[in-house]
């Protein structure tokens, strides 16, 4: 888990750099264009890794999805598009479960993304002010993110237990936080927001420090209020960061799995089993790797379309301004 956190923290550099780029692009180009080979050589190591660990497996995944595939069995019958067709055929083995799980993922994404885009922004704006103990509070908000999903899941399972949990003890009621709708969604979204908002807040903070002070000073001279400064300086300045935050948050929420596995086990019934949960069960427990690969591709296409729409929306806004 620590490794994951590091990778993700390391990843912050990329969007921030991206955020800077447009402003620097206006500077006169003095780049050395003479040796394209040098650029390719420097890019090669990444390309090799990207090809070996992303492209090749992804293509191989398409191949798998066209078979009744179990990697240890000698006979892997070719089934053509059957694995895909059955996902769209009512009454087939996977149809009901697949779309129910897609729906569960949709509900979770729809509920968690707005929270994870808006709340961290507010926190970042607050933490960007100068006040005593600022570093401490920055750490406080980021800290949960360092914990692994196993820790978070188990922790909340005990805290939120309907009968023996501490939350209901203080409320003096027996709300079924982990066993009944709609409470399970409140719990899953709430715990995920608490867990990961520090990550988005950190990215916003990096973006905020990148907005030139002079813009705020100029706005103040023009008599802009705090609110007006936020809408006309802060938000436009954060636009590239916002694209990154919205896109990665949607993808991360759509890949939710550990929380539901630990907190609810899909309960009630299979209501909170997300699509990744279903794919993992079918592919890794039932060894139906062909069907699981096909489901992964349908999910990937959905996410691709959503990402494109997000980019579209933000680009249009940028064009307007």
């Amino acid at each position: 888990m620590a490794v994951t956190a590091e990778t993700q923290v390391g990843g912050v550099a990329a969007p921030v750099a991206a955020a800077r780029r447009p402003r620097r692009a206006s500077a006169p180009r003095t780049g050395r264009r003479s040796r394209p080979l040098t650029a390719y050589l420097f890019l090669a190591p990444y390309l090799v890794l990207f090809g070996a660990f992303i492209i090749a497996p992804a293509v191989y995944g398409i191949w798998i999805s066209l078979h009744d595939y179990d990697f240890v069995l000698p006979f892997k019958p070719w089934v053509g598009l059957d694995n895909y067709v059955s996902l769209f055929t009512p009454g087939s083995r996977d149809f009901g479960d697949f779309w129910q799980s897609m729906g569960a993922t949709g509900i979770f994404t729809g509920l968690s993304v707005p929270c994870l885009v808006v709340l961290p922004l507010g926190i970042a704006v607050l933490l960007n002010r100068k006040f005593p103990g600022r570093t401490f509070f920055r750490a406080v908000f980021f800290l949960p993110y360092v914990l692994g999903v196993a820790v978070i899941g188990l922790l909340f399972r005990y805290i939120l237990d309907p009968n023996v949990g501490v939350v209901n003890y203080f409320l003096g009621r027996s709300i079924p936080w982990t066993t009944d709708l709609p409470w399970v969604w409140v719990s899953l979204v709430g715990m995920t927001v608490w867990w990961t908002l520090g990550f988005n807040a950190t990215i916003y903070l990096a973006g905020l420090t990148d907005i030139p002070r002079e813009l705020y000073e100029a706005a103040e001279m023009d008599g802009a209020s705090r609110g007006q400064q936020f809408w006309n300086v802060t938000l436009p300045g954060l636009r590239p960061v916002l694209v990154f935050v919205v896109t990665t948050t949607i993808l991360a929420s759509a890949n939710m799995f550990g929380q539901q596995l630990l907190l609810t086990k899909g309960a009630p019934g299979t209501s909170t089993r997300t699509i990744i949960g279903y794919i993992a069960t079918e592919g890794l427990s039932s060894f139906r790797m062909g069907a699981a690969a096909a489901m992964s591709y349908i999910l990937a296409i959905f996410l691709l379309i959503i990402s494109l729409v997000v980019f579209r929306v933000f680009r249009e806004r940028q064009d307007e301004s």
Partner: peptide, 20 residues
């Protein structure tokens, strides 16, 4: 039982890695 162990090593942003 089940996939608890899988989840333990599974963060929200690691799906691609895991899938790979």
């Amino acid at each position: 039982p089940g996939l608890a162990a899988v989840a333990a090593g599974f963060s929200r942003r690691r799906f691609l890695v895991l899938g790979g």
